[in-house]
Amino acid sequence: MIEAKEVSLRYRDGTLALNNINLTIGEGEIVYITGPSGSGKTSLLKLILGMELPTSGTVKVMGKQISGEKTEELRSLRKKIGPVFQELKLVPGRSAMENVMMGIRFLDFSRQEIKKNAADALEKVGLSHKAHSMVENLSWGEAQRVSIARAIARNPGLILADEPTGNLDHDNAINILNILTSFRQKNTSVVVATHATHLIENQKNITIIRMNQGNISIEKRGDEA
């Protein structure tokens, strides 16, 4: 699903965000990326989504190499990914429902499917009752759940979530992680960047990528947590 070989990412200001990392994530795998702020978690997710391009090395996602030149290929790849952005990237002036629908309108769904998928996704994140509220009138935690709904409504092959539980209370955070990990049954890979290591302490069958100053260490956790 995701294959990174000797990947480094250095920003224009000289900051080294990723340092020669090697990584393989399979189909249906649940991966948590942990580490302190500035360790490179968001950079790694941005790289997988093609928001940043590697300075060196290669990144392949769903068999396609991330490259600046292959714009159309990148676009079709992004259509198969459900991203949850740290800064949410919801569109103000629209309702929660409209925001979720906007994220799936250009996928191969009929008009009815667009509405149904959006409504179902909002129900999953417990926001059916706020479907027609403007996103600027929602709390940050609610807005975060709208962002998650937008990602899962796409029926993605890969979910990339950057701090999806950052502003949620414990119960809602567990609920969101359960929703995300439930996509394993659909063979969807889920990559979650999080500070909240306490939420994954008891999770089984997961991969934990620990990041520190652009370097990674990988821990595979099986059925015995």
Binding site: L49, R78, K79, P83, F85, K89, V91, M102, F106, R154
Partner: peptide
């Protein structure tokens, strides 16, 4: 911002 987001979600230039 909306245009950028749609781009990250895979929307075409036409859309």
């Amino acid at each position: 911002e909306q245009i950028k987001t749609l781009g990250f979600l895979g929307a075409s230039r036409m859309f």
